[in-house]
Amino acid sequence: RFADVILPAASFAECDGTFTNGERRIQRVRKAIPALCGQENWLTICQIAQRMGYPMSYGHPSDIMDEIASLAPMFAGVKFDRLDDGGLQWPIPSLDHPGTETLHAESFSCGLGRFNAVQHKYPAEQTDAEYPLILTTGRRREHYNCGSMTRRSKGIMWVWPEEAIEISPADARELGIEDGETVVVSSRRGSVKTKARVTDKSSRGMAFMSFHYQDVLTNLLTNAALDPQAKTPEYKACAVKIEKIKA
């Protein structure tokens, strides 16, 4: 029932190291408790490398940061003891450099940006009399991707415990659907049951669902038609219909 090898894993609260956020800020992380699995993740990676024949060995995560600084010029000025006062934003080319708060302040490092005009193309699937609504999908604030982690949290599930299709008040009136009513949502590929959520957040003709819940497999409805430019499937736009469940 298990894999041949099971690796121990420690959470962020059980490890020393750094996080780098979206504004390029490198910040120190200090473990709150010892790793429950017995060791931190960097030690596990070292042991895997050693068993594969590479002598990877460090005394502390700060040694790893020192090696990164020695090899990558943009991190040359990074040391753990420099990250205590709010961290530093890369590039940090030397130990006396304060970090780079604004990137590309005078010009872009790779030259001027280029703008290209493109012609708008409609989604591969359009609405019709049978499937009159456009469904778009996305995430809920409270959940993450398929929800396999966030649905384990009692607090998160208390805030948003189940899936719902969000539709506009105008569409709800036209379809005779009440807020909280269970409905069937169908596309040309499949159907799911979920509750209706009547909200002004949805424009007329548009509906929204997330893909966090295993009992409502939203992606059974979506369209895998490939966009010729982006080379990605058109999961964010497909034609659907919403039907009341007959008594």
Results as ranks from 00 to 15, higher is better:
residue 37 C to L: 07
residue 78 V to N: 05
residue 128 D to V: 10
residue 111 G to V: 14
residue 43 L to G: 05
residue 125 E to D: 08
residue 100 T to N: 02
residue 236 K to R: 05
residue 37 C to Y: 06
residue 155 G to N: 07
residue 120 H to G: 03
residue 73 P to S: 09
residue 239 A to G: 02
residue 57 S to T: 13
residue 109 S to C: 14
residue 121 K to Q: 15
residue 105 A to V: 08
residue 130 E to A: 11
residue 34 P to Y: 10
residue 66 D to S: 14
residue 176 G to P: 03
residue 56 M to F: 13
residue 36 L to W: 04
residue 110 C to M: 14
residue 76 A to E: 08
residue 27 Q to K: 01
residue 189 R to Q: 08
residue 37 C to S: 14
residue 247 A to V: 10
residue 38 G to Q: 06
residue 191 S to K: 07
residue 229 Q to G: 01
residue 135 L to D: 00
residue 95 L to G: 01
residue 200 D to I: 10
residue 29 V to L: 14
residue 99 G to I: 05
residue 226 L to S: 02
residue 39 Q to R: 13
residue 84 D to T: 10
residue 190 G to V: 05
residue 226 L to F: 00
residue 202 S to T: 11
residue 186 S to P: 00
residue 60 H to M: 05
residue 145 N to R: 03
residue 61 P to S: 06
residue 202 S to F: 02
residue 66 D to C: 12
residue 245 I to D: 10
residue 112 L to R: 12
residue 77 G to W: 11
residue 155 G to I: 10
residue 94 S to G: 08
residue 78 V to S: 09
residue 164 A to I: 04
residue 214 Q to N: 10
residue 222 T to G: 04
residue 177 I to T: 07
residue 24 R to E: 08
residue 118 V to H: 04
residue 169 P to W: 08
residue 196 A to E: 04
residue 247 A to W: 02
residue 145 N to M: 03
residue 152 R to G: 04
residue 5 V to N: 06
residue 200 D to H: 13
residue 12 F to A: 12
residue 12 F to E: 10
residue 202 S to G: 13
residue 138 G to M: 05
residue 62 S to K: 10
residue 95 L to E: 11
residue 163 E to A: 14
residue 97 H to Q: 09
residue 175 L to P: 07
residue 241 K to G: 04
residue 169 P to F: 12
residue 31 K to S: 09
residue 133 L to D: 02
residue 17 G to K: 12
residue 5 V to F: 06
residue 122 Y to N: 09
residue 80 F to M: 13
residue 240 V to N: 01
residue 217 L to G: 04
residue 2 F to P: 04
residue 34 P to T: 08
residue 200 D to P: 11
residue 146 C to A: 05
residue 14 E to P: 10
residue 73 P to G: 07
residue 228 P to C: 09
residue 207 A to K: 05
residue 163 E to I: 01
residue 213 Y to V: 06
residue 152 R to W: 01
residue 227 D to M: 02
residue 113 G to R: 13
residue 58 Y to W: 13
residue 61 P to A: 06
residue 187 S to Y: 06
residue 20 T to C: 12
residue 190 G to D: 05
residue 228 P to Q: 05
residue 204 R to S: 15
residue 199 T to M: 08
residue 63 D to Y: 10
residue 133 L to W: 04
residue 18 T to C: 12
residue 199 T to F: 00
residue 62 S to F: 10
residue 151 R to N: 15
residue 71 L to F: 07
residue 160 W to R: 13
residue 13 A to N: 10
residue 212 H to D: 04
